[in-house]
């Protein structure tokens, strides 16, 4: 899949409490959660971002709470992909499980700035900064995770397993 969008560059340790604050966690609706995405960190993000835009952040993105609402909020507001230097463990699982595209690529993060236009080839893990012309290769996913990603998430993976059992 090819993605194109504008970069929103943030720092390290962006935690799930600022991705989607607890006051909104009584909802499970992607669009509703998406309308509050990152509002405690950057109130302008949600008003100025456009569908397809890409979050680019430093180390340990998604640290903190296990709330899958964080992945849903990012998907729900229309972000097409998150690129980070590294991801916190549970967020990493959640993103793969719910089909939110993520890429780990410290070199790209060091280069990209807010507003740069990006092109991402998810299968190849290629990130191109079309504003500067630079391109980067993200860390490939281990085989088992690629299987879940290719199925579109963990729900399908388990559905197949349940089907095989019956």
């Amino acid at each position: 899949m090819l993605l194109e969008g504008k970069a929103w560059r943030y720092g390290r340790d962006i935690n799930t409490d600022v991705i989607i604050p607890a006051r909104y966690l009584s909802s499970t609706d992607e669009a509703e959660l998406g309308s509050h995405c990152l509002e405690d960190l950057d109130p302008d993000f949600i008003t100025a971002m456009e569908a397809g835009d890409i979050i680019v952040a430093g180390e340990n993105f998604g640290s903190g709470s296990s709330r899958e609402h964080a992945s849903l909020a990012i998907k729900g507001c229309g972000v097409s992909c998150v690129i980070a230097s590294s991801f916190a463990r549970i967020f990493y699982r959640n993103a793969i499980n719910v089909g939110l595209p993520i890429l780990e690529c410290p070199e790209a993060v060091a280069h990209i700035e807010t507003g740069h236009e990006l092109k991402v080839d998810l299968e190849k893990g290629m990130i191109e900064d079309t504003t500067t012309g630079a391109s980067f290769q993200a860390t490939p996913f281990p085989g088992f995770m690629r299987e879940i990603i290719n199925l579109g998430g963990l729900v399908e993976y388990v559905r197949e397993r349940l089907h095989d059992r019956s």
Partner: peptide, 14 residues
């Protein structure tokens, strides 16, 4: 260990 809701669903199912 902590996991997400979809992981929990898998644990509940399988």
């Amino acid at each position: 260990t902590g996991v997400g809701s979809t992981d929990l669903a898998m644990a509940m199912a399988l």
